[in-house]
Amino acid sequence: MSNEYDRSGEPVVQRFTREFLGEPNRYQIASAGVALLALLTVPFWAGQYLYVFALASIWAIFAMGWDIISGHTNYISFGHSALSGGAAYTTGVLVHNVNPDMAMYITFPLSILAAIVIGLLFAVPTLRLEGPYFSLITLLGVLVLTQLVYIYGEYTGGELGITAVSTLTYNLTNLYYYTLIPMLLIGAVLVVVSQSNIGRILRAIGENEAAIESSGIDTTRFKLWAFLMSAITMGIGGAMLAHFYGNITPSTVLVVDRSLEMVAIAVIGGMGTIAGPIGGAFVFIILRDEVLTVFGSTGRWLALWLIVLFFLVFLRDGIFPFIWSRIGSIGGGRDE
C-alpha cells in the first residue's frame, strides 16, 4: 500500500507514528487520538471517576514497568511489587526516621535508586538463567522484603506502616493530572523503546531466546537493560504511590498480591505492547472498583481472576492489541 518513494516527504508526526506504531491507518490514528484526548479531559466528562482514574494511572505505571521486562522477554516476574514497594518504603523510612521535612527532590531519586538496588540483588543473578528461576526468585524476593518490614518494625512501623509521608494533594482534579502526566511521559518513553530495535530484540528473546543467542547477541545484556528500565519505572511509580496515599503499609505497596495484580493488568491489556497495559490498568481498576462490585467484595475478585484466565486462554494478545488490529482492518486493512 504505501509507496516507498513518498516517504522522504511525509510529515514528521506521520513518520514518527509509522516508525513506532507500525503503520497505523487513519482509523487507528484517530482512535488513539480520541483515547488520549479522552484521558486528558476526564475532569470534564467523568468527574466522579477522577480518583479511580488517578489510581489507574499509577497502576498503569506499574503494569508498564512489569511489561518492559516480563511482557517483552517472557521472564515472568511474580514479585515486581518488591521494586515499587521498596521505593515506597525508602520514601517512607527517610521521612519517618531521618527528617520529616525531607524534600521530594531528595527522597524521589533515592527511592528510584532503592528500586534499582533491590532489582540488582534479587533479579540479576537469575537473568542469565531460564525463566522459572527468575519467577521463583522474584516471588521469594517479595516475600523476604515483606518479612523484613516486620523484622525491622522499629523503622518501618510493621503492619501499621508509616503515615508521615505528605499527600500529593486532596484536590481530585489535580491529583488526576499529577498521576496522569507522569504516566503518559513514562508511557511515551517506553513505547519508543518497545518499538525500537531494543524492543524487538526483547520480544524476540521472549519468543526464542536460543535463536537470538546463536545469532551472536548477548541476550543477558538486553535483559539487564530492560530490567533496569523496569526498576526505574517501578521506582517512580512506587514513590508516587507513597505520596498518593500519604502512608505506607505492607499491604498497600508490598505484598505479593500487588505483584499478581500487575501481572493481571498486563495480561488483560496486552503483554509486550506497553500501550496495552496502560489501557489494561484502566480496565482492571474500573472493573474492580466500579463494575464487578455487584458481586460483592469477594465475588468481584473471583470474577476478576476468571476474566484474566479467560484472556490467557482465549485472547492471549490482550484486549487492546485485539481492538487495534480490528480497527486496523477497517477499510480493507493493511495488506500484509
Binding site: 501499621l160 506502616g161 503515615t163 499527600t167 486532596y170 496515599y245 500519604g246 502512608n247 503499609t249 498497600t252
Partner: peptide
Amino acid sequence: VSEVALSLADLVAEN
C-alpha cells in the same frame, strides 16, 4: 484496624 485508622487520618482531617 489501626493501620486503616492511621492512614485515614490525613484524609478525613483535610475534609
